[in-house]
Structures are given as structure tokens and as C-alpha cells.
Design a protein around this nucleic acid. Sequence first.
DNA 1: TCCCTGCGGGAAAGGGCTTTCTCTGCGGTA
DNA 2: TACCGCAGAGAAAGCCCTTTCCCGCAGGGA
Lengths: 355, 355
Amino acid sequence: MATLSDVARRAGVSPATASRVINGSSKPVTDELRERVLAAVAELQYVPNAHAQLLARSHRSAVGVIVHDVSDPYFAEITRGLQRVATDQGRLLMICNSYRDPDRELEYVELLRGHQVAALILAGSGYHDEAFTRQLNEKLAAYEATGGRVAVIGRHEHSGDAIMPDNRAGGHLAGRELCALGHRAIGVVAGPRILTTTTDRLAGLRQALAEHDLDLPERRIRYAEFDRDGGAEATARLLDSDPELTAVVALNDSMAIGALATLRARSLAVPGRISVVGFDDMPIARDVTPALTTVRLPLVDMGVRAMSLVLGAAAPTPRIEVLPAELIRRDTAGPAPGPPRARTTPRARRANAAS
Amino acid sequence: MATLSDVARRAGVSPATASRVINGSSKPVTDELRERVLAAVAELQYVPNAHAQLLARSHRSAVGVIVHDVSDPYFAEITRGLQRVATDQGRLLMICNSYRDPDRELEYVELLRGHQVAALILAGSGYHDEAFTRQLNEKLAAYEATGGRVAVIGRHEHSGDAIMPDNRAGGHLAGRELCALGHRAIGVVAGPRILTTTTDRLAGLRQALAEHDLDLPERRIRYAEFDRDGGAEATARLLDSDPELTAVVALNDSMAIGALATLRARSLAVPGRISVVGFDDMPIARDVTPALTTVRLPLVDMGVRAMSLVLGAAAPTPRIEVLPAELIRRDTAGPAPGPPRARTTPRARRANAAS
DNA sequence: TCCCTGCGGGAAAGGGCTTTCTCTGCGGTA
DNA sequence: TACCGCAGAGAAAGCCCTTTCCCGCAGGGA
């Protein structure tokens, strides 16, 4: 690889001058020399060594992002928002996939710190895991102590700036809609228990049901991976144990698509026999058949705001922005089938509750 | 940020020793000193400066990847394959999205070179643009001249190692299937003309039709963006100009989903009234209704092979691996509707061909 | 006893760049 | 004529590590 001094030598100038020309320094350089340097750069196909540059100007510029998986549409959308702001400000993004592995998350914090990122953004649900949370907070605090900026998206455990989608309100929206449609036997296809996103959405849902005198027993909740196959499988288990269900809430759209697949496989009409509500409103939601009724989260906007927070002025007190959820009515949620039946209290079936 | 010498000072050792302990050098260090260094590292929350490390050990390790867009399922799958191999070998991946902008692609080659990547992988269609292709090849050649390894996925213009999905054979598969089902009025929803992927797939398709005495006039091809909305819009245009079409080939699955949306909006039964064949077999293809008949490409495997090529021994002559396409029959392609009609030659309708 | 060997540790030389500081020579002022 | 100021260029000091080279010392063989 050609180095700066190669260029300088070839142009017959000092490395200092070459550097000034190449970086468009404010210090003036004669046109004559400038020409010579530029010519040498072209001839040698010179590209500055980014590591050397970053080392020399101790000017952190890149931003680190840790997500569960960029190819998951949820994160793809958030990332789109992050990118938009970062690109506008000429920042490079380093994106890391933790694949929902807490340890990997911890490692990536270190890695990105090591890469001297100016800021760190963690997107995606937090974990119900005190030991991990403490460790993560320590690492983040250490990073912030050295001037690094941190923002999180969708996790409350962090003490600094945060962008929070209103998962609880979203869950409530889904529950209220189904209750309004007359459903009383509602099952839930949930993501991993250990994720705060799961429990937050569940909490909102449970509250909505409670407001309609319904409770949500554990046997009507099935936990699985937060993806299509998880949704398909959890729906199957749900149906097996409770065939009378008239509605299923999936805690994200991928799971909802899996649920739809299972329902189709069992020839249960949606929404005629059973209704489905998803969560997140990812782009594909409108293209499945029937089009998915779901809870929309302003994902791109969440990314935009998080990046703005982190690249803007630091605030003395942590800022927490809660972004609203919105119900998108499409075609998978309809009125509960059959005549309005007597209210069967869950207690009456307690014998089953062995889940 | 704490530096190595901070650690060394605190531990009362030389930076050399500290470095050896931290990196697990082969050189032996007394347990006593080791302990002290480790303690200092913990107390100071020391993380080595990655740039300084990379500079010091002039040991290229990371691999650069340029794709059109990781959040596009096509590239997400390829990337999964790339990651798998890279992770196994302890390599860090730097992934850049060009968003199908040739200039950005060129910039990223420079950027990644500057970051001293050990290898470069370009995934995604090439362009019918000689000037660009020449520039890119120059840059790649310059990089290879300094010992960098390069592989491309799905573009033929490069002179070195390449992994090629058999786009042409895939197009042929789609065309043959539709012809076998009796379709004679077949439209194409194509990606941008400038992409070689588009023209390759089109060429295969055209050949299959020719084998059944059909030709593919330009007015039955609509070019649009390679995404869902492009597919929806192109399908609408196609239908407007040629309502008798009984089948549509979409040149990727995203476009196929858009096509399905338009068809649904116009209440045209799939596959009863009109058949649809996609391309790529992205995961969602099986979950739309009706499930999408499409041409599968071994995307993950393409990633795996490309990375293996680039991390393995260099070959004296460029290696080109062509990976086969496979037709996946699902529910969107059925027999052509109506009684077998007289073969209407496209020539008979030439008056329309004003597209 | 002397020398050699090998071990554990430190000094110092880079690695490629930026940037401050210094130097040279010129035009302009007193 | 003597001096000042400044523009434009180079020298050199880092930035933070790794790694080679070298040194002192203890132990073992002759």
C-alpha cells in the first residue's frame, strides 16, 4: 500500500504538505505544489490509512449501533432512521448484530469503544436479567465517563437518554380492539419471557382485558422465539390446548405471520373464525392475506430521534422520549364469531391451568 | 480514555509487559505481574484502541462487504452466509449499503481499502455502464495489487473470483413452467434495465418462450424499481396496456408481492385468472396468499462460498462458481385460463407496440 | 570458578498520519 | 538601511499500540 510519504516523495514535498493538500487543510498551499501532490495521489492510487488517521486526529467521528439483527424488518426500519441522520452529518455507522445474545451485546460495547466511536446506540428490547443489566450499565457508564454519548431505543434499564416506543399502550390498543369486537377468549403468542418488550406489551394487553373484566391466564400465553416459526409453533400449541380461542394477539408481526400460517394450515378462517392482531406494522403486514391488523410503532422516527439525541448537545439530565403506538385496522381482526355467549370466567376452567 | 501506559504505570510494569498480558502473548510473564496488570485493566476499564492496534500489527483482518441493502431479504440471506464463515474464522465484517448507487459503490471501495480490510466482497447486480465498470475494475485492481483479495457475487464484469447465481437458467425455469401450463400471454415485471441481473433473467425467460415459439415484445416488459412498490406499479401498467395477460413473471420476489397486491386490488384471481412467478425465494414467499411460486437461489450458500474463496488460498486463475437456480412450485402459478385458443402471434398486435 | 543458556522484563523502534512549531525568504514600513 | 510581519514550506512531536532487540540474572554444565 502506498503511504503518505510515498506520495510526498513522489511529489517532491514534505509529508506535511501532502497531508494538507489531501485533507483540504485551511493552511494555504501553492497551486503548483497542490497539483504535484494530487498527481502523485492519482498515480499511486493512494488512499489514506483510516486507522492512522483516526489515531492521529483524536477526533471520534463514527457512531456504533448495536441491534438484534439488521435484517429483521423491525431493526431495518430503525436503522434506516439512524442512517438518515448519520449520513446527513457525515458520520459513519458501525452496525453490530447481537442476535439477542446478551454476552455478545457486552462484547460489542467493548469492541465499539475500542473503535473509538463518538456515540453508542443500543436498539432492541432489554432483558429481565439483573446481573446482565448491571454489567451493561457499568460498561456504558465507563464509556460515558470518557466523553462517549449513549442512547438506547426500547429498553428502560439504562440511566441515560432513551427513546421508548409505547409498548404498553400498544398492547392496550390491541386488547381494547379485540374486546370491542366482542372477543372474550383471547390467546397470546408472545416473544421470549426474558425480553422487556414481551412483558411490556403483555402488561398493556392484560390491562385492556382487565378493563373488560377479562383476565389473561398463563395458559393462554405461549412464549416462543420472536420470529415467524416461533409464531407458527406457539399458535399451534395455543390452539391445541384451547381450541375455543376466537382471537390471537401476536407480540410482533413476524409471529403474526407465523400464526396466520398455522391458522391457514388448520383451515381456520381469519377473521371469520379467529381474529389475529400483530405488532410493529412492518412493511409486509399490508401484503399478507388477509392484510394484517396490527399496532404501528414509528420505527424510522425512533431511529431519527435516537441519533439526533446522541449527536446533539448533551443534556444534564437524561431525556426520555416516549413515542406513541397506533392501531392499524386491516383485515385480520373481525367480530367474535357466534352468538354472544355467557361470560365464562376463566376461574371456571382452572383445572386446565397447568401450563 | 485510559491508555496502555496508564495501565502499565498503575501496575508498575512496562507497557511491553502490559501489552503481553493483555494480548495473551506467547512470551511468558510471571503470575505476579500478570495479576497486577489484569487488576489495573479492570480498575481503569481499559479497552485497547483498535486503531492503534491495527496500525501496530500491520495484520489486516477485517473483511469489507458492499451490498445494495442489507435489509433487503436477498442481501440479508447472502450476508448471513458471509457472516457464518467470517465468524468461524474470527473475522470482523464491515458491511456497507450502496443502495444501488454506483458512485457510492466506488466510494465504499476506497473507504474499505482505507480501513485496511483483508478482502472485499461485492454482492449484487452489476451495471450496464462501461465507464463505471472500468472505474470499478481499476480500483479493484489497485487494491488487489497491494495484496487485497476480491470476490464478487452476481456480477460478471469483474475479472477475479466470482460466485454467480444462474440467473439465466432461473429465468428459463420460470418461462418453461409457464409455457408448460399453457400460458401464451406472459408479461414481465422487471427491475431496472441497467442491472445485469435484470437482463440475465430476462434473457433466460426470453429463451424459454422462444423454445415454445413465443416471443417477448418490449411492450410486455415493464421496468421499475426492484421492490414491492415498483412491482405493484409495473404490474398496473402492464395490465393497463395488455389486459389479456394470463401470467406475470416478476424478476424478484419483492416485485412479485407488489404484483400480487395490484392483482388483488383489481380482483383478478391468482392463479385462476392470472398466474404469477417470482424470483429469489425469499422467506416471505411461502407466507403470502396464495403462496408464491418462485425460482430459488441458494443465497446463503452464495455468501458462504464467496467468503471461503476470499479467505482461502489465492488462485492463480480466477475462479467462477455458478450456483444453480431451482423452481419452487407453490400456489401462484396454475394452468392458463379458458379453452386453449389459437396461437395469436404477437405480430398480429403490432399496432399496440408503442411502448 | 567460568561460561553458556534461557527466562523474564524493559527500552525503543516503528506503523501512517496530523498538527504544532520552526524556519526561510519576501514585501513593506519607519 | 534596518527591522517587522507574514506567507508558505518543512521538521518533528505526538496518537496508542506491538514487537523486536537487548539486558540482567539465575541455574547448570564443564
